[in-house]
Design a protein around this nucleic acid. Structure first.
Lengths: 146, 146
DNA sequence: ACTTCCGTTGACGTTAACGTAAAGGTCACT
DNA sequence: AGTGACCTTTACGTTAACGTCAACGGAAGT
């Protein structure tokens, strides 16, 4: 039992390793540390990211993808650590998630509106152009595969 | 012919009038002027917005609604003034519109992805909560009209 | 005269999530 | 030594579209 640690669990990552894996820049990871979202250890001067850091980073990036702010993400991650039976964390995550979901759906409505508005505007413009004897053919290869 | 101007055409607007009509702040109109998007005349110290200014403002706000930047809008508006038969303006507007449309559609794809991701995440969280004996009933009046 | 309303011109502040130097340390080659 | 790769900290810069003072002017009402 002199080497008890699970190799997966004890895995260490340098900053560039994580950067490559998640396609972010070192600046980003340092920024997240500064924002208290990550807490890498040090070995000499250098940061050593643990398996947990890696998992947290994954969560951070997923959170960003669905539009959470870093502050929101931090709040949820912090609660995760407190482990008061984890119920509080889950409830907060749920309520934040629902709020964000509503937000996203509102955005989608606005976006759809914008799209149809823009489509109509383009049609009008194209109408004005053809009226002036100018053709408006889209010459993209739209799906001319086979 | 001493009062030849069409009353509609010659209509003048003070800054707060336009602000009320379009629900923007004075700061916004001054900002647009500074950005060369509007060109109100002066009467003493005060700005006098013409019918044309009003029309331009309307176009600016519509442009914003579909996600154009003020710089883009300025470019299109400027071309409108040059009137080289208006063909150039229309072509530029069309191409910008198509580009923006593509952009919006990309956004919509990303947004839909985010929404489904978030929905699944919430389901997972809710599953974990009910597993712990906590109910997650949404107590909104969802559509309880009749 | 005093206040209130409407208007003016600067000019710095805000927000988020990093980007981008600047200046340097360590280690391995060569 | 020198070169290069990788790492560090500190700290100012970026972007968009205004917000928010500060300090002031002119007209109207009381």
């Amino acid at each position: 039992m002199s080497e008890p640690m699970n190799e997966e669990q004890a895995r260490r990552y340098t900053i560039t390793q994580l950067c490559r894996e998640f396609d972010v820049t070192p600046r980003t990871l340092r920024f997240y540390e500064q924002k208290d979202l990550l807490h890498p250890a040090r070995e000499g001067m250098n940061r050593i990211f643990s398996h947990r850091d890696r998992a947290r980073l994954s969560l951070i990036l997923r959170g960003k993808k669905v539009g959470f702010s870093l502050d929101d993400i931090k709040e949820m991650l912090d609660l995760y650590n407190l482990k008061d039976g984890q119920v509080t964390q889950l409830q907060v995550a749920r309520s934040k998630g629902l709020a964000q979901l509503e937000h996203l759906k509102d955005q989608r409505v606005a976006l759809d509106e914008a799209i149809t508005d823009l489509e109509r505007a383009i049609e009008i413009v194209e109408g004005m152009l053809t009226e002036r004897g100018i053709d408006t053919e889209a010459e993209f290869a739209q799906a001319e595969s086979a």
